[in-house]
Simulated assay, not measured.
Amino acid sequence: MTAVIRRVGPEAAAPVLTVVREAFGSRPALDPPADALQETEESIAAALAAGGGLLAEIEGTPAGAVLLDPRDDVTYLRRFGVVPGARRHGVARTLVGAALDAVRTDEVAVLARQELPTTVGFWHDRGFEEIARDAPYVELRRRLVTRSTVVDGEAMRALGERLAGGLRRGDLVVLVGGLGAGKTTLTQGLGAGLGVRGEVTSPTFVIARVHPSLGEGPALVHVDAYRLGGLAELDDLDLDASLDDAVTVVEWGAGLAEALSDSWLEVRIDRATGEGDPLESPEVADPRRVAVRGFGPRWVG
């Protein structure tokens, strides 16, 4: 059974309500009863109009749903549920992944009933951490975006080395930022952390460079996508490393990552003032703001 997930609005209130009633109605009796059982088509439509939602369907039949409720820097996943007949087929996991990709806030949160430890455990297994208990609810959150301020080139390279510690063969890293933001400097840190051969420099004039591992780790494939019509064109390049066996770092890759992988790590680098280049001239005060976020199933857990 393969679920198809689509983003929906108030026009989908009826099928979403069907899922909510079947999913929450099949759970053990709770005291007090689940608020979800009081939902109406009108209340669901209002929630979908405010924040949108996701509907999972199997062969055109509603199988799961979730409402998105963004509030400042956190989005709550409301009325998350899967109908009884679609359980144990990966629908819930697929729906979580789609929800995380749809959210654009720094954090995502859920409220689970404390009388349902299996439900709480499900969210723990997806990288959510308990932050509060207010009977009968447990609030769990997961940070999607890690933000930091980088003051010079040494700090940017150090950040790259730290990021390298969490990478493995087949990973894709997409670097987003303007000219002089520090994308190549960060890649130098990634190369140092991965332990690869050769000096990492801007790949502008060669499109892609391969840096083999000095040990048993993955190679680093450093790509400049500025002049590529799409990352699929990488298949036409005579690279000395399989992308499945390497860590691929793509500068100017925003909007193209989907052509190469269903999962990627986005590193967005913004210049605070845009004046000078403190990564090369430390006396110039223009720190970088760096935001790191994972997309796709590789980064769900």
Rank of each mutant, 00 (worst) to 15 (best):
V4E: 15
V4M: 12
V8P: 06
G9M: 06
A12R: 13
P15H: 13
V16S: 07
L17H: 10
V19E: 09
V19G: 07
F24C: 08
G25C: 00
A34C: 04
L37C: 08
L37W: 08
E39Y: 06
E41G: 15
I44P: 03
A45W: 05
L48I: 03
G52D: 12
G52Q: 08
G52C: 10
E57Q: 15
I58S: 08
E59F: 12
E59Q: 15
E59P: 13
G64L: 04
V66F: 05
V66S: 06
R71L: 13
R71Q: 13
V74C: 15
Y76F: 14
R78Y: 02
G81M: 10
P84H: 14
G85H: 14
G85Y: 11
A86F: 07
R87F: 07
R93C: 00
L95I: 11
L95Q: 09
V96T: 10
A98W: 05
A102L: 06
V108H: 06
L111I: 02
A112E: 00
A112V: 06
R113L: 12
R113V: 03
Q114L: 08
E115R: 11
E115T: 10
T119W: 02
V120R: 03
H124K: 10
R126E: 10
G127Q: 08
F128K: 00
E129P: 00
I131A: 01
A135E: 14
P136H: 07
V138Q: 03
E139K: 09
L140P: 04
L144S: 01
V151F: 12
E154L: 10
A155S: 10
G160M: 06
E161D: 02
A164L: 10
G177Y: 02
G177H: 02
G177K: 00
G180N: 08
T187Y: 05
T187D: 09
G189E: 04
A192I: 02
G198A: 08
P203H: 01
H211C: 09
P218L: 05
L220R: 01
V221K: 02
A225F: 04
A225N: 02
D235K: 03
D236F: 14
L237Y: 10
L237H: 04
D238K: 05
D240V: 12
D244P: 00
V247I: 06
V247M: 03
V250M: 03
G255R: 11
G255S: 11
L260Y: 06
S263M: 07
R268K: 14
E275Y: 09
A285V: 15
R288G: 03
V290S: 07
P297E: 12
V300S: 07
